Each structure stands twice: as C-alpha cells, then as structure tokens.
Amino acid sequence: MENFVDQDVHRFGRFNWMGLYTLGKREVLRFLAVWTQTLLAPLVTAGLFLVIFNIAVGPGRPDVMGVPFLTFLAPGIMMMTVIQNAFANTSSSMVISKVQGNIVDTLMPPLSPLEILLGYLAGAVARGALIALCVGLALALVLGITPEHPLVAAVFVLLGGAFMGALGLFAGVFANKFDQMAAITNFIVTPLAFLSGTFYSVEALPPVLYRVTHANPVFYLIDGLRFGMIGVSDSSPLLGLAICTGATAAVCLVVWQMLRTGYRLKA
C-alpha cells in the first residue's frame, strides 16, 4: 500500500507527454475526419449571418462606435462561431464516449486528470483556431477587414476556445444523455453567446441588461476580439483578458476536480 501511494504521488511529478499528445491528436483527427461539418459548415453559417444582417439592416444603418455596422458585426460573428464549435467539440466527444460506453478507453491509460483535461482542450482550441483562421481569411477577402492588433486577436481566440472547450467538457461530464446535453446547450450556451454584444454595442442597453452583460465572460471574449480585429471595444481589453483568463481557470479547475473524482464517469 505504501509503495502504491509513493508511485501515485511520483506519477504527478512526471508529465505523460506521449499520452497527452495521443489524446490531443485523437481529438483533432476526430473533427478533421468530418471537416465539412466541423469547419466548412460553421464558415457557411457565419457568412449567412453577415449576409442576412446586411440585407435586413441595409446600407442606411448608422455607424456603431465609429465603424460601419457590418465591420462592427464581423468580429462578434467570428467569436460566436469559435466558441460554439469549441464547446461542441469537447461536449460531443465526452457524451458520445459515455453513451457508447467507450469512455473507459480514455480513463484506463496512464493519464492524470490534468492530462485528460489538456488533451480534450487541445482539440477544442485547435478547432476554434482553424475556424477563426477560415473566417478571418473570408473577412479579409470579402470585406477587407484585417486585424488591427493580430496578437490581441489571437490571444482572445485561443482563450475563447479554451474557455468554451472547458465548459463543453464540464457539460459532457455532467450530461448522461443527449437530451441533457441539448438542454445545457439551449438554456446556457446559446444565451451566453447571443446576449453578449455580438450584434450590438452594450452601450445601447438599459442599465439592468448592461450590468448583466458585463457579468458574462463571453462578452469580454467578443469585445477583446473586436478590439484585436477593428480596434474598437466597449471595455478595456486588459480587463477582458483578466476576466476571461480567470473564468477559464475556474472552469478548468472544476472540470479537473470532476475528472479526478470520476464524477459521472466511473460506476
């Protein structure tokens, strides 16, 4: 018993890089195998959003924060697409594994809870980053929008993928059935994405909604990417960076604890 405890403690002192790489590679290859659904479809959806809003609002729409409405809208659509797909990547992977009963293939190898968490997040961040790159290229070609602050834009894209990837993993561990997963998506993720300044400046909101929006981490993700892409924002990018980093760390800590205890994973 004493040797087992010593080995277990020692195990946390060494990082299983090969196992982490293998799990991360599995998650990346999983979404690349169906790229028409995971990469092409979000790109088409983002384009449809921009076209529909352009037609519905029309050229007479006044500028928002000193920039044309479509230019203001584009970074919000980009981030919304990134976070929705990062969430879908981890949540679908975990729920499908649980429903099909092959979650044991992930739990049996010598992977620590942190390594499992990082492996799943690698797939979510990779998918989010690829989608952001595709949407960004389309915006540059069609609308002529290029990043004002490329490093800031990249940081918020990666943070968005990590935050929603961790939230998706939390939802996937919590949900035991597809209808539970759908409920989490419909009543938590979708409101977070849509009520976050994606389609409007929060300065136009009434005081109550203004305060509620500023409590939403997704608002800071969108606002930070907007600053990185077009140089305007509703709040300080540094404040947004701090809040998004803290929110990501908090969700990751909760998921790590769930994985460590085997919550809803082990019979």
Rank of each mutant, 00 (worst) to 15 (best):
M1R: 09
N3H: 15
F4S: 12
V9Q: 10
H10M: 11
G13M: 04
R14Q: 12
R14I: 09
F15H: 09
N16I: 04
W17T: 13
W17K: 12
Y21K: 15
L23W: 04
L23R: 10
E27R: 08
V28M: 14
L29P: 01
R30L: 06
F31L: 09
L32W: 12
A33T: 15
W35T: 10
T38G: 12
L40T: 15
P42Q: 13
L48M: 15
F49K: 02
L50Y: 06
F53R: 00
N54R: 14
V57H: 12
G58M: 12
P59Y: 12
G60L: 06
P62D: 10
P62V: 03
P62L: 01
V64P: 00
G76D: 01
I77T: 06
M79Q: 07
I83S: 03
N89T: 13
T90C: 07
M94N: 06
M94P: 08
I96Y: 12
S97Q: 12
V99R: 09
G101E: 04
G101C: 10
G101R: 02
N102L: 07
V104W: 08
M108G: 05
P110F: 02
L111Q: 00
L111K: 00
P113K: 05
E115C: 00
I116L: 11
I116Y: 00
Y120I: 01
L121Y: 02
L121R: 01
A124F: 03
A124C: 04
R127N: 11
R127V: 03
I131D: 00
L133H: 09
G136H: 04
A138V: 11
A140G: 14
L141D: 08
L143V: 09
L143E: 15
G144K: 08
P147M: 13
V152S: 01
V152L: 12
A154F: 04
A154I: 06
A154M: 09
A154H: 02
V155H: 05
F156D: 07
L159Q: 09
G161A: 11
F163E: 01
F163Q: 10
L167Y: 12
L169A: 02
F170W: 12
G172H: 03
V173R: 01
V173W: 01
F174K: 14
K177M: 14
K177D: 14
K177T: 15
K177Y: 13
Q180M: 14
A183N: 04
T185Y: 10
T185K: 10
P191E: 07
F194I: 11
F194N: 02
L195S: 08
S196P: 04
G197T: 02
S201Y: 04
L205F: 14
V208N: 11
L209Q: 10
H214R: 13
H214E: 11
A215G: 13
A215K: 05
P217D: 00
V218E: 01
I222S: 09
I222Y: 04
I222Q: 11
D223R: 01
G224C: 07
G224S: 07
G224V: 01
I230K: 03
D234I: 05
G240H: 06
L241N: 05
A242K: 07
I243E: 00
I243G: 00
A247G: 03
V251P: 00
V251A: 00
V254R: 06
W256Y: 15
M258P: 05
T261Q: 15
G262I: 12
Y263K: 15
R264A: 07
L265R: 12
K266C: 08
